[in-house]
Simulated scan of single mutants.
Amino acid sequence: METAGGAVSQCKRGSSFRLRSPSLNSVRLRRIFDVFDKNNDSIITVDELSQALALLGLQADLSQLERMVEAYVQPGNHGIRYEDFEALHRSLNDAFFGMTDDVQVVDEQQREESDLCEAFKVFDEDGDGYISARELQAVLGKLGLQEGREMDRVEMMISSVDQNNDGRVDFFEFKDMMRSVIVPSS
């Protein structure tokens, strides 16, 4: 039997440049695009991109940046739209993190485990390896769900998946719940 301490070690907290969950990655990428798009015209110009990179402490040669981005600028545009930005990101992601001959392919089970860890971390705000009723309530509230306003409903949600009856959800309980709800894609 795995302990709660095992739950923490199974789902390590740490920073990662990219998430393996496509939906979480998409949200993060959209936020980055919106930050880069200073004038909110839904297009990032080379100047905006250069300024954003400079704020991140990354100095880029403007002419090199123009050459890199121009392949993603659609005819008639003066910069890249979000869809173009996604394509640029995929290209950079493949270049920096893509599969090479000397890199083994991560098997699907490890990828699923990693995705579940990322999802678990969204709820486990204090990083203690458990989702408490308070943490669940906070996330539901941020999502604007009415269930987040009523602690008794939140506690019922916790107890419905709390297999060891400790009043909170550990990673293994969360994983069991998610696997029973999510139909694997083929």
Rank of each mutant, 00 (worst) to 15 (best):
M1S: 13
T3H: 15
A4C: 07
G5P: 05
G6K: 04
G6D: 14
A7M: 06
V8Q: 06
S9Y: 12
R13Q: 11
R13I: 00
L19Q: 05
L19V: 01
S21W: 07
P22Q: 07
S23A: 12
L24M: 07
S26M: 06
S26N: 05
S26T: 07
L29A: 08
L29I: 06
I32H: 09
I32G: 00
F33A: 01
D34N: 11
F36C: 01
D37K: 14
D37H: 09
K38H: 03
N39P: 11
S42M: 08
I44Q: 01
E48D: 12
E48C: 05
S50W: 06
A52R: 03
L53A: 04
A54W: 00
A54T: 02
L55D: 00
L55E: 05
L56Y: 00
L56A: 06
Q59R: 09
Q59T: 08
Q59I: 03
D61W: 14
S63Y: 07
S63P: 04
L65D: 04
M68K: 13
M68I: 05
E70L: 13
V73Q: 05
G76I: 03
H78L: 10
H78D: 10
G79H: 09
G79K: 15
Y82P: 01
F85I: 08
E86I: 03
A87H: 07
A87M: 07
L88R: 02
L88D: 01
L88T: 00
H89W: 15
H89G: 02
R90Y: 10
S91C: 15
S91N: 13
L92P: 00
M99E: 09
T100P: 01
D101Y: 11
D102I: 06
V105E: 12
V105T: 10
V105L: 15
D107T: 12
D107S: 13
E108C: 07
Q109D: 15
Q110T: 12
Q110M: 09
D115I: 12
L116E: 09
L116N: 06
E118Q: 10
A119G: 11
A119P: 07
D124E: 04
E125V: 14
E125C: 08
D126L: 15
G127F: 01
G127V: 05
Y130D: 00
A133C: 13
Q137P: 03
A138M: 14
L140S: 07
L140Y: 10
G141C: 12
G144T: 03
Q146E: 14
Q146H: 13
E147P: 03
E147N: 07
R149F: 06
E150D: 15
M151L: 03
D152M: 08
V154F: 05
M156Y: 08
M156C: 11
M157D: 05
M157Y: 04
S159A: 12
S159P: 05
S160H: 12
S160I: 04
N164R: 12
N165D: 14
D166N: 15
D170N: 14
F171V: 01
F171T: 00
F171M: 15
D176K: 15
S180P: 03
I182R: 11
V183H: 10
V183Q: 13
V183S: 13
P184S: 11
S185K: 06
S186T: 06
